[in-house]
């Protein structure tokens, strides 16, 4: 039971990441590899502010979102100069740079040692020590993020994003300024990723830089491509499938080295095959 709870918590954290990245990637057509950086900034904001400053969990979520929002504003402004593959490579640069700062700025981040002893959230005087109560909280966050995502994509703002995705010139004719819209959704998406980071830090009661890498970012992209581009439910489905797969492989009895590689092989093959037979993903509505 405890084990299923653990997987469900991981699912809700990755669900938030997948939904948030889908806003940028699926709805706006920007394949960003900077998302792992925002995830990391959020996680470290919570870990450091809770252990060093003594703020409460919910305050650190807000601080993390603010910090990530500012970082995303700066990074997004730089990235807005690039298109397509240059955009992807440049965004990868930010993940690598943030990773290196987390790894090497020991005085603040603890370096490779990471930060441990991160407390669990406290609601109305009770600390959520049990994983079940933490699952409840993380599902609430997932619901809020998915709900906010749905509202955004259904609003006139979301429609403008889709027009920009299809044709920026047309968007200009309609009076939308692509740059502002792209920047706005980039910042919103980054702030959502920050929430996922905060949850991870408090759940594991520990953070270290090794989670916030390019590989992690590619993993979330695979979730979206698999589950569905430009579809909130698709992002959730993709997260559930890719989180569930390796856990299911634990029970198959394959030697572990093979099982770990089978997971990688499966998601690699899925990426390739899906692009051929269903480029928009299982539930998706858009092809990049």
């Amino acid at each position: 039971m405890e084990y299923l709870i653990n997987i469900s918590i991981l699912f809700s954290i990755y669900g938030i990441l997948a939904v948030s990245l889908n806003l940028v990637m699926g709805y706006t057509g920007l394949v960003s590899l900077a998302h792992a950086a925002f995830y990391g900034i959020g996680a470290y904001a919570t870990a450091l502010l809770m252990t060093k400053v003594g703020l409460g969990f919910f305050e650190t979520i807000l601080c993390g979102m603010l910090l990530t929002g500012l970082a995303a504003l700066a990074i997004g402004t730089v990235l807005s100069r690039f298109r397509d593959d240059y955009y992807i490579i440049a965004s990868a640069g930010f993940t690598v740079i943030v990773f290196n700062i987390l790894m090497n700025w020991r005085e603040v981040t603890g370096g490779a040692v990471g930060v441990f002893g991160v407390p669990r959230p406290m609601i109305a005087g009770t600390v959520l020590t049990s994983n079940l109560s933490f699952l409840g909280l993380s599902l609430v966050f997932l619901a809020v993020v998915a709900g906010a995502g749905t509202l955004i994509v259904r609003s006139s703002f979301g429609r403008a994003l889709k027009i920009i995705r299809e044709d920026e010139d047309v968007a200009l004719v309609f009076g939308y300024r692509p740059l502002h819209y792209k920047l706005a959704i980039f910042v919103i998406s980054a702030m959502m990723a920050s929430v996922a980071g905060s949850l991870l830090a408090s759940y594991l009661m520990f953070v270290d830089p090794s989670t916030f890498t390019l590989n992690e970012n590619v993993f979330v992209i695979a979730m979206i491509v698999l589950g569905g581009l430009a579809d909130i439910r698709g992002a959730l489905l993709g997260a559930a499938l890719l989180i569930g797969l390796p856990e299911a492989l634990r029970f198959t009895g394959f030697p572990d080295d093979i099982a770990a590689q089978m997971q990688k092989l499966t998601y690699g093959l899925l990426l390739i095959v899906l692009i051929f037979i269903r480029p928009q993903g299982i539930l998706g509505k858009f092809r990049i």
């Binding site: 405890e2 084990y3 709870i5 990471g114 594991l204 090794s210 856990e247 634990r250 770990a260």
Partner: peptide, 21 residues
Amino acid sequence: MEDDGLEAKKAASAANKLISV
């Protein structure tokens, strides 16, 4: 035995599986 690949996140699910399952 349970595999954690020496990674923090995998160790959390490996430990949880060992203890609860």
